[in-house]
Structures are given as C-alpha cells and as structure tokens.
Design a protein around this nucleic acid. Sequence first.
RNA 1: GCCGGCGUAGCUCAGCUUGGCAGAGCAACGGUCUUUUAAACCGAUGGUCCAGGGUUCAAAUCCCUGCGCCGGCACCA
Length: 455
Amino acid sequence: MRDRREKLERLRAAGIDPYSRGFRPTQTSQAAKALLGESERTEPVALAGRLMVKRLQGGVVFADLQDGGGRIQLMASRDKLGEEEFDRFADLDPGDIIGVTGPIFKTRRGEITLEVQSFQLLTKSLRPLPEKWHGLKDVEIRYRQRYVDLIANPAVREVFRARTKIITAMRGLLDERNFLDVDTPVLQEVPGGGHARPFVTHHNSLDRDLFLRIALELHLKRLLVGGFERVYEIGRVFRNEGLSPRHNPEFTLLECYQAYADYDDVMRLVEDLMVVSAMAAGRPLETSYQGEAVNLTPPFRRERMADLVLEHTGRHAVGQELNDLFEEHVEPRLRQPTFVIDYPVEISPLARPREDDPRFVERFELIILGREYANAFTELTDPIDQRARFEAQAARRAAGDVEAHPMDEDFLRAVEYGLPPCGGLGVGIDRLVMLLTDQPSVRDVILFPVMKAES
RNA sequence: GCCGGCGUAGCUCAGCUUGGCAGAGCAACGGUCUUUUAAACCGAUGGUCCAGGGUUCAAAUCCCUGCGCCGGCACCA
C-alpha cells in the first residue's frame, strides 16, 4: 500500500491523473473476442476494465484485462508503444482500472489478444489483489469484502447473475399471468403473517415503536379485499433469529395471492415456478445439490402430513404433536420434491379449514432435500373464524409464546369487508437460489450477509 | 445462547504435538529477459503470529479471558 501511494504521487508529479475519466469502451471483452472471427486482425477497439495479472517478457508485456463480461489478454510491446509509453504500461499494477485501444489478433499460442496502441489509467488501485493462483478463499474476507470476492472469484459473479435471472423469471411468469407486482410496507405496526420474532425500531417524530416486517401476507391479502385479484411481491423480510448456513436475518421472500384459486391451483403454480427458475439458472430438472441427486420434474409427489407421519413413525397424531413428529422424523427424510399437504389448524392461523375435517387446513409446504421451499394455503376468508384464530394465538402469546401471531384489528376489518376465496404462496428465494446454484450456504447467495462487527 | 474447530506476511499456507533467532510460494520492490499464460530468472524486502493476561530463563507453540470466522445444537424459511 505504501509503495502504491508513492507511485500515485509520482504519477501526479508526472502530470498523469490517476483518477481520470472520459474513456468510453466501444464493447466488452467478450464482444471484442467474438469480433476476430476467422480474420487475422480487427480494426482497433476500445475496452475498459481491471488489470488482473501482468507477465513481463523484456520488451513485451502481457496482461489480462477483466471487465463485466470476462477477460481478454493485452499485449504491449516497446516497439509499438515507444519507450516512454511502454514503461508507463509496465508500471501499471494488478488491480488498476484502465482503458485500452488497439486491434484484436491471435498470438502464436492462439490466445485472442488486444494489441495495445494506446491506454489510459482510469483508476489507480491502492490495495494489492489476492494472489492469482490460489485466489481468495478466506470466507470472512469473501463475505465482509464482497467486492474483493467478486474481483478475485469470477464464478461468484455467476451465482449472483443466476440469482437475478431466477427472480426475473419468476416475475416474468407471474406478470404473464396477470399478477400485479406491488410494494407493501416494510415498517409495520403489527408484524404478522408469519411465525417469527420481529426487529423493533423507533420512529422519532411519531415517538412510536415500529416493527420490520416478517412476512408480506397480511398486506397482500388486504389488496385482494381492495379488488386486485392477483398480486405478488418479492421483497426483503426480517426475522430476529440466529444465523446459520440456511438463515440470514434478512432474506428475500416471494409471496403471491390469487383470487378464486385454492391450494391445488397453487401447487401447479409452484411447479411452474420451479421449472422456469431452474431454466433461468441454467440447471437441468434432473440435477443435484451438493452431490445429492434431485429431480425437479413435475408433477411433484403429494402426501398428507398425517399419512407421512403414520408411515414413518407408526403413530396417529394431530395438532402440534403431528407437526412436531413430522419435523423430527419425516421432513429430513423427504429428499425428492414433495408437497406435504393438510397441516394442523393449530399451527396455521391464516389458512382455510378442510371441509371434511376441520382439524386440518388446506395448506402445503414443498419439501426438497429435507428443506422447505414453499409454504402455501387456501386462505381463510371467514372473518369470524379469523378473529377466533387470532384470539387463540393471543392466548398462546399470553402463555409465553413470543412468536405467536399478533392480533391485527385492521386486517380483520379488511376481511370483514370481504376477502374473495383465494390461494396464497410464499417462497424463500435465497434457499431456492442456493438449490439452483448448488451453493452450500445462504451467505453464498446474499451479496452482503449479516456479520458481527469486525474485530 | 450452548458445544466443538480455527485465527501466522497483501493472498495461499507450513511451523504448534514435544516451548529455544518468525518460515515458504505468489504479490509488491530492484535488476535480466521482445509472443508469454498453473507461479520465467537473479536479488533484496516484507510480521501487533487475532487481542489481553498468566506460566517459564525463554511462548506463534502451554494455560485463562475476550473478539471474530466456520460447523453443530437451539430458534426459524
């Protein structure tokens, strides 16, 4: 660093602006490489990017330029550039951002290369890059200083490109089916729609505590009351819980609600979403995650929770006990995509009861490799029942369950105006991206994961 | 929150078992080399061994405490 600071001052003294501007690349490195085709040499092109490695060979310097799309080799020779410019090029450091102009050709070894006719230092880098051969492995630096990770490990960029493609594909499918993409409040008076502890914050001029949302559900359903028949939101939610390879306190949730649909319709929607997501990520449906084979080809298996628990434990159970048995004995063993249907009403305060057996609700979760990827139900539309459910939750809260669903009078008022029959869905985007990009930790699919204060 | 592992140069890592001058490769620095590309050659550099305390003639190494990272448990998606 000290060396580079001195170099910076030398450059300034020589009249060179180490943070210059005005250079316009004419294309990306990828496009420039494609330009060559079968010809020997192209017209000069202008490229800009970060200098990665430098190989000096006497009167010739080879270097790799990395831009948003990839890398291309540069070659600068003393003969072509002249003594002064050549020395100045050779003096560049890995990490510097430069603009270069020159024709594309192929070296003796067959590497497509830009022959530097002129170049401009755009941004001087003061910090050394991680080593070129071993790269950057220290996960603490990779997560805390993602910018370095993205420079040093181009494969990481592909994970995040895939993430965006997956989200774009999901939006595309929902848009195509006339779902309206909406924004609902992040700061809420009543953090409902899920089973989790919220973050608390404070509004100064209102002098009132507010909560960061833990789910999107209650506001989206209010919009169905308002007459939007299909809505969705892909947004950040916040849950005040521990960290793990599968948990980040803020994560991205897709929720969508469709009037006049039920959970069978939603299962088909989930299958379609999985297919377009896998395609967007460039994964075949018969794929694998961390070495374990997974077949994402619909239709997915559908099983009642009570049947699965009976099959795996030999026990007939209902209510909380059924769910506990399911989570302990069944869920880890469900490896291929499975819709687990018909959850106990006690743990589903927002879902519609089955008409043939009101101890259960029309709810499903999609389980793959023992993990939950989607949670959905036919929504409860009866305001009297909804109030009773909230009151049951309030009783649990009074008994010490801090995650029990809070009473939400405004939501009840909305449902009293009339919520159309509907199906709703929630999908944890981060975990889906983990699956489809084969990443082991949620931190590998969140650009800036939550970390403790740097020591 | 609990349990376990880890923390050494800018990066990747040895050294710790069994205490005895702080090590290697790459990067950076000086020089050589005009088509190289898994790291050319020669030379000289480079350290709060995570932090603090303790044991000892002597601590990167042994002990204690704290911080951070990773994994597991708990909580949850």
